[in-house]
C-alpha cells in the first residue's frame, strides 16, 4: 500500500445534550493513503460528518472527542494527550469543503478577499501576487473572467459556482488531503456531475487524496478507490469499491446497494430497508443493525468487531450471506 497520510484510530466523539450524552462516533478507525479517494458512506446521523469535523478539529462544545486519536503523517492532531494541534496542518495540508455552498462563504466579503485570505496565510503572498494567485485558482476550478469575478460577492455566484470557489479556496494551500463533506448534495444533478468531474481532475493533477463523504452510492462508484460504510457511529464495512459493489458482505451494505434506484429497472418498486437507525443516547450493546437485519440471530447481540476479509473488513457475524434474498435466513 502507498504511504499513509491520515490515520484515525478508535475515534469516539460524544455530544453532551440536555437528554444525556449522545455518542455520535463510536470507535472509528480509518486510514487514507497518498493519492487515494476514500468514500465515507452512510445515512443521515450515521456519524460521517462528525468524523470529518473531528479530523479537521472542528468539534466544538457541546461536542468533544471522547477517545481515540487522529494522526497526520504520524503527528497526533486530536485525541488523548493533544493539548494543541500542531499549526499549519489544518487549512494547509488538510482542507475541507462543505455541504451547502450557499452559506459556506462570508456574504459580506468579496470572493477575491476570501481567496486571498487563504493565499496570504498559507503561501505568504501579498498584494498583487496574492491577487494573481487567487485569479489562477479561479481559473483552475473552471471559473472564467477570474479578474472580474474576484471583486464580486458570493450572492453574485450560483450554487455550483460557489462550490467551485470553495474548492479553489481548499486547494489554495496545495494541500495533500481534501475532505469533501457531501459537496454536491445541495446542487442540481448536472452541476453535481461537473463538480465531481472537477474534483477527479484536480486529484489527478495535484496528486490529492480525497475523503468524500456522501450518501450517494453512485458518486462513490464513480470517484472512489475505497469505501467505508458507516452505521450508527461505527464503520460496518470497508473495502475496495469494485469488490464492495459486486460482493457486499454486510447486510446493511447489501441493503444500501439494493435500494439504489436503477434506470433500467423502472417498473419495479424502489426497495427500502425497513425501520430506522437506533438512537445514540443509549447505543445498542451488540450489532446496531440487528433490529433491521433480516438474517439476525442470537450471536448478533454481542459487539461486532471489524474482521479482515479478502480486500477489506466487515463487522458482522453473518457476513457474506445474501441477506435480502427471499428465504435467505
Amino acid at each position: 500500500m502507498t504511504e499513509t497520510l491520515l490515520e484515525i484510530d478508535d475515534l469516539h466523539v460524544a455530544f453532551d445534550t440536555r437528554a444525556g450524552v449522545v455518542q455520535a462516533v463510536r470507535g472509528v478507525s480509518l486510514t487514507v493513503g497518498r493519492g487515494e479517494t476514500l468514500g465515507l458512506v452512510g445515512e443521515s446521523g450515521s456519524g460521517k460528518s462528525v468524523t470529518a469535523q473531528a479530523m479537521m478539529g472542528l468539534i466544538d462544545v457541546p461536542g468533544r472527542i471522547s477517545g481515540g486519536t487522529v494522526r497526520w503523517c504520524g503527528t497526533p492532531l486530536v485525541g488523548e494527550g493533544v493539548r494543541r494541534a500542531p499549526r499549519n496542518i489544518w487549512g494547509r495540508e488538510i482542507t475541507m469543503i462543505f455541504q451547502n455552498p450557499m452559506t459556506s462563504l462570508n456574504p459580506l466579503m468579496t470572493i477575491g478577499a476570501q481567496l486571498q485570505e487563504a493565499v496570504r496565510l498559507h503561501l505568504g503572498l501579498r498584494g498583487a501576487a496574492a491577487r494573481t494567485r487567487a485569479a489562477d485558482l479561479l481559473n483552475a476550478v473552471g471559473i472564467s473572467g477570474a479578474a472580474r469575478r474576484l471583486d464580486q460577492y458570493p450572492h453574485e455566484f450560483s450554487g455550483g459556482m460557489r462550490q467551485r470557489v470553495m474548492i479553489a479556496m481548499a486547494i489554495a494551500s496545495e494541500p495533500r488531503l481534501l475532505i469533501a463533506d457531501e459537496p454536491t448534495t445541495a446542487l442540481d444533478v448536472t452541476i453535481q456531475a461537473q463538480i465531481l468531474e472537477l474534483l477527479a481532475e484536480l486529484q489527478s493533477q495535484l496528486g490529492l487524496s480525497i475523503i468524500l463523504i456522501t450518501h450517494d452510492l453512485g458518486i462513490v462508484a464513480g470517484l472512489c478507490h475505497r469505501v467505508a460504510v458507516m452505521y450508527a457511529g461505527q464503520i460496518v464495512e470497508t473495502g475496495a469499491v469494485d469488490t464492495m459493489f459486486e460482493q457486499p458482505a454486510h447486510p446493511y451494505t447489501q441493503g444500501l446497494i439494493r435500494s439504489t434506484p436503477l434506470l433500467d429497472a423502472c417498473d419495479d418498486r424502489l426497495v427500502a430497508i425497513d425501520g430506522t437507525p437506533p438512537g445514540l443516547l443509549i447505543p445498542p450493546a451488540g450489532c446496531a443493525f440487528q433490529p433491521r437485519c433480516p438474517v439476525a440471530t442470537a450471536p448478533c447481540g454481542v459487539p461486532q468487531v471489524l474482521t479482515p476479509t479478502g480486500t477489506g473488513a466487515v463487522a458482522c457475524c453473518r457476513a457474506g450471506i445474501d441477506a435480502w434474498k427471499v428465504g435467505a435466513a
Partner: peptide
C-alpha cells in the same frame, strides 16, 4: 457555516472575529 469555512482555512479565532464576524 462561513465561520466553519474560515476555521477550516486555518484562520485564528481572533482573525475570524475581527475580519469576518465583526463586519457581518
Amino acid at each position: 457555516q462561513y465561520v466553519q469555512t474560515a476555521r477550516a482555512k486555518g484562520l485564528t479565532l481572533r482573525r475570524i472575529l475581527r475580519v469576518h464576524t465583526l463586519r457581518n
